[in-house]
Amino acid sequence: MPTVHATIIARGGGSTFHRKNTCRVLGTPIIAYAIQTCQQAGFIDHVFVWSEDEEIRSIARSLGAHALERPHSMVHYYSGFATQEEWAAQRGRQIEVIAGGPGDVNVAFNCNNFLLRPETLAAMHCQAREDEAVGGVIAVAAVEPGLCLKTRDGSLFPFWNDLSVPRAEHPPLYRRTGVAVTFRERFRNGRMALAPFVVSREEAFDLQHAEELPLAEFYLRKRLGLLDSDRPAAGEGC
């Protein structure tokens, strides 16, 4: 049976806002949701959490995941002290000590996408297994048209945005999430394309800013049947 490893790379300081990965939504840290989704998907043998932060590693251990110590020189994307390949090699050495070798199937799980359901992850694995022409699958979600970008003088220029065309008739646009299931052997054989696996906008939720925490709380409350339409919801946060 092929072995399946899930890897969650989590920065202690938070890449977009402070302590993002240990921020609590409905009382549970975001990193915990990511770990539990991988564990509950039912096809993953080992869940590894790679972090330089002891609090994150402690949460991982408490949930039965393997906590890998991440060197401080391998935390910042553009620090210049180590390349992404060196990062992967470092993780690979640590994983080999615990699991005896790399996984045949790898699940890369970005904490930001902690609302992805375990059954969706399992379905991604099924699709990836069946489609041998690709290296794996990546979760994507449809994006509404109606965007713009800023020009040099700060004025707005429409992008994928033409009100004379009905929204439903705009060419489709998708956002890739940070969750992918890949097959190591296929990558080694040059099949590196990732097929898209469409998920709902809710499951593709990508936590980037602290102000989005109420949205995350709403989606979780809805999923758990905790929405109370009559009374104001209590605040949550870090």
């Binding site: 646009l173 998708y174 956002r175 898209p196």
Partner: peptide
């Protein structure tokens, strides 16, 4: 908006 955008 997250700029990680693709079209099929």
């Amino acid at each position: 908006e997250d700029p990680n955008l693709y079209t099929p």
